[in-house]
Design a protein around this nucleic acid. Structure first.
Lengths: 219, 219
DNA sequence: CATAAGTCGACTGTTTACAGTCGGTAATGG
DNA sequence: CCATTACCGACTGTAAACAGTCGACTTATG
């Protein structure tokens, strides 16, 4: 009765591996670990206060997420993205999200969908006065919600696997440029298209949104 | 001068982790490790003759590829796919491959593309008299080539991340059903559409191919 | 002085050992 | 006979130690 450490609500304590994963992801996508930087396992494990074995499990995952690139002899470094890679990432992102939009349009009852998307847009509006990071966060949350609402776990998972790369793309372009095209109106258009169930329009709106976003980033 | 073990041609010796990864992937997608089966680290490490630490790194990757699912206490088991999940996987696959087709159609010079695809189709024809596994392999190789030829590394990587799930889908349906719709003609249609540069047609052909494939699998 | 052999240091690959936790089962008390 | 507690076995989480390899720097040698 006295203990009550915290795990009350779904807030399960995360394993060290997961903590390290989050910490590293944040460090990379925030630029704290700059692109091209060599990662030394012993250094990181000491910084994070975890053992190398545990750390390596996290590194493998980051590697597969495309945040790290492997050098000659297992040497890992923070991945560097050039303009083409950013465009490529956004092309895949566009394909995934347009599938999401199409799927949502085909749902018989889109009431709940519209409601959730509206909530996400409200969050974006709240964030317009916040920090750059908060604006990016709310923007990504909208798109993640788009994928989640489809109920297609594979789609959501694929998108989330890309999320790290997306964040890096934004960071590469400089945060200011990255958020410059995160207009709330754009997202309202997407929601509206889905609301009407016009799959072709929704798809087109998404593709255009992604195109301009990618173009802004590499410009 | 006497040694000359083997690493002469790009055939670098793979790390134990990679070997374990391949072995486990094969074991799972071949059904040797049946769906739902609980994986015990100590058992596997003994089977594969590697340490648990090394094994765990491989398991993390398989988990992220969607071949394993994590239970309550970090317990891993071979993922079980139901009809909906197979359809979901193929929906994502279709989105990725239709992006590939569209990208290829937009290339200024598709000569090399057509040549490579033709080679892949020839391999499929050669395999028609081979084992089921060989036919599946050549089929997947065609689609993988489709993605690779785009030059979009992210697209290729996303597709390959899905490949394990695709193989599982085919296995779930029973190998016979899985290959029943791998007609060479279908793939020739795809190639032809790309050859003419008709993006809309190529996209449509891919989507239909995926739709019928998924429908066959869950039927 | 240039080149080849040798030595040192830094990292990754891999293994072994230890700790914590959950589930079941047997012992115990009413 | 039922419930409760104490223990035991099985696994995963985590840490620490061992081994091999590559590169850089140094030293010997013609």
């Amino acid at each position: 009765m006295a203990g009550l450490t915290a795990p009350l609500l779904g807030l399960e304590k995360k394993s060290l591996r997961e903590q390290a994963l989050s910490a590293l992801r944040t460090a990379i996508t925030s630029g704290e670990l700059e692109p091209g930087r060599h990662l030394v396992e012993t250094e990181l494990s000491e910084m994070l206060q975890i053992s190398r074995g545990t750390l390596r499990e996290a590194l493998r995952q980051l590697e597969q997420e495309g945040l790290l690139s492997a050098g000659p002899r297992g040497r890992l470094s923070v991945r560097h993205l050039d303009g083409k890679e950013i465009r490529d990432i956004y092309a895949v992102r566009a394909a995934l999200e347009s599938l999401a939009a199409r799927t949502l349009c085909e749902l018989p009852d889109r009431q709940h969908v519209t409601k959730s998307l509206h909530k996400a847009i409200d969050a974006m509006e709240d964030a317009t006065t916040g920090t750059l990071e908060e604006r990016i966060e709310s923007d990504l949350e909208f798109h993640r919600t788009l994928c989640r609402l489809t109920g297609n776990e594979t789609l959501l998972h694929s998108w989330e696997s890309l999320e790290g790369s997306i964040r890096m793309s934004i960071m590469f372009a400089g945060l200011e440029k990255g958020v410059s095209n995160m207009s709330v109106d754009r997202h309202k258009d997407i929601m509206a298209a889905i609301d009407t169930g016009d799959a072709a329009l929704a798809r087109q709106t998404i593709l255009e949104h992604m195109d301009t976003a990618a173009a802004n980033l590499v410009a």
